[in-house]
Amino acid sequence: MSDDVLAIENLSAAIRNGPTLLHEISLRLAAGEVHGLVGTSGAGKSMIGRCVLGILPAPVRVTAGGIRFLGKQLVGLSERDRRAAGASLALIPQDPLSALNPSRRIVSQMTDVMRLRLHLSHAEAYARALAMLDEVHIRGPQDVLRRYPHELSGGMRQRVLIATAFACEPRLIVADEPTTALDVTVQKQILRLIRELQRKHGTSVLFVTHDLGVVAKICNSVTVLNAGRIVEQAPVADIFLRPQDAYTQALFAATPRYDRPGDTLRPLPADFA
């Protein structure tokens, strides 16, 4: 399908002179769709996000396959072209503390990307930052913009990051475990917020998480990964009702179920962990 926002085709990545991290990953993401990438740590889910964003760690290379974003092949582009192609991409990072530069005020961290990508003036970017903070339900946005990151709570920081991610109207957002570092109550608010903004702006989201409960709340479809390989790929409803693969079933068994409080949790069997 040519109207897919993102199409990953047989993507493989490896550490130079080292082990292969991703084996022939393929997935498609339509406009406005939320796709979950699930697996234990080290399964390669974050690495896929980094491939799409073009921020692989230095020793890791894409060895085969391609990534089409809005019809444009990203693999093999020069760094400069890659940056240009990334104008409609954004990231909601995992740790809201380390994702904001501790030595810069919020205002400059929100507006720098608007000035770069949308060529806004200072005043225009400031106005847009205020509007975006309003969209993520932050009260007193002028005050927040003046602050340094350490003066905000974790939930506030994550809201700022979400506002920044949506500020340039991206077509695709990679959300890399955006709720893992937060309190449970804040987690729910943040998930609801991402869902709300994603629908409003019609943005596609590649949602990286190890939490199947989160997947059930927010995703349309899901890819289950183990050791850099796809073990299962299906719409969310299918996977939750009829998990096909033994690994997926084991993941489910290890996920707390709020609806069945009596069940005991089973740790992931040793050959999967």
Partner: peptide, 10 residues
């Protein structure tokens, strides 16, 4: 993460 985010920003 902030350095990665800045690169993603372009």
């Amino acid at each position: 993460d902030y350095a990665l985010l800045s690169r993603v920003k372009g």
